[in-house]
Simulated scan of single mutants.
Amino acid sequence: MRIGVPKEIKDHEDRVGLVPSSVAELVAHGHEVLVEKGAGRGAGIADRDFVKAGARILDAVDAVWGEAEMIVKVKEPLAVEREKLRPDHLLFTYLHLAPDPDQTRDLVASGATCVAYETVTSATGGLPLLTPMSEVAGRMAAQVGAHALENAAKGRGVLLGGVPGVAPAKVVVLGGGVSGTHATTIALGMGADVTVVDRSLDVLRRLDARFGPRLKTAASTRETIAALVAEADLVIGTVLIPGAAAPKLITRPMLKTMKRGSVIVDVAIDQGGCAETSRATTHSRPTYVVDGVVHYCVANMPGGVARTSTFALSNATLPFALALADKGWRRALAEDPHLANGLNVCAGRVTHPAVAEALGYDLLPLDRALAA
């Protein structure tokens, strides 16, 4: 199979879909890998590194999309990229379709087969291709939140860990999953006063066992969230419903009760955000202020640490990329129900239940998609 790796064009998105070691594995399996010139530069990977691994470097992005049968990316294709999709293309990347009707419409119209990293599952019920970026985003959330609290960033001027004689910042983490756990790790490590909110008591028990009395936990209700965000200096939103839009846990009335200069870091923004006032931002302009509250809603947070993120992501995606390339997508999905959960669009139809429900599409069942 001919596998194309285009350069990412989203604002400050410096990750790349494959690293040289992954290219070498694909080449060893008999596949041809086409990499756009300069695609790995932002992650510190030179074209010559891809060439040594067996890839062919193409000067033009149109050549990559034109020659490739399978496109391996990091972020969802932007409008100009979606125009390049063909019915015979297999697209393997993050999509986050539920809050993005324009992208969904274009992918459906393209006729391409689109497998989304974020809805591939594991035998243990996890999301193996989302996990590495959730780990990165969670760790970054405390870091960028600490910066956003500084006066120069229009924050309250509060140091996350405080100093002797001055209390640390109060941090509320909404969601105790992968991102929430990693955000908690860093925030506690910086000395903050941290409370994690989750609707699952099992999750709260796990966190309590892991972090001990340093961490406060709270069962999620609207009343509890309202009370906690009103006292918080930093709120980190990490809630996730696989494939679906994130629930709006922070309402506009709640926002009005928050301290002036407090900060919301909405890690859930890829799925539409967990605050009613959240809207996607970029690394170039990461924050904005509503009702005196600083919002950090960068939709590709891990792109800010592109080298770490690229290698972490490629480690996770390689086995699935090999399966798709070696077997073809129909056989690969038929033999692996967890990879099959990644199928979001096929033959001009939506194939993921959460996406279909969120955007009002008729669902094409998997068995019919495989036969299409």
Rank of each mutant, 00 (worst) to 15 (best):
G4R: 10
L91E: 02
Y361M: 10
A245W: 00
T251L: 01
A325L: 02
A137M: 08
P247E: 05
G261W: 09
I57E: 12
R206H: 08
M70G: 01
P365F: 00
F320I: 13
P128K: 04
L78Q: 11
I57A: 05
D291A: 12
H12Q: 14
D102M: 12
G138Y: 10
T113C: 01
I3Q: 06
G303K: 12
R210H: 15
E76M: 07
T317Y: 09
I71V: 14
A53T: 04
K170P: 02
I250E: 09
P319M: 10
Y94W: 12
M254N: 01
G54I: 04
G162C: 06
P20E: 10
V178E: 13
L85W: 13
P337C: 08
P319V: 07
V163Q: 03
V235F: 11
D59L: 11
H96K: 04
K216N: 11
A53S: 02
M133H: 06
I241K: 14
L85R: 10
A183M: 07
S284N: 13
D11T: 14
G66T: 09
K52I: 09
Y361H: 11
A280K: 11
F50Q: 11
A148E: 14
L34S: 06
D62I: 02
H338P: 03
A53R: 06
L343K: 01
D100P: 01
R156D: 05
H182Y: 11
K248D: 01
P242E: 13
R48V: 15
A358Y: 06
D208A: 15
G111W: 05
K327M: 11
V51Q: 08
V289Q: 05
N300I: 00
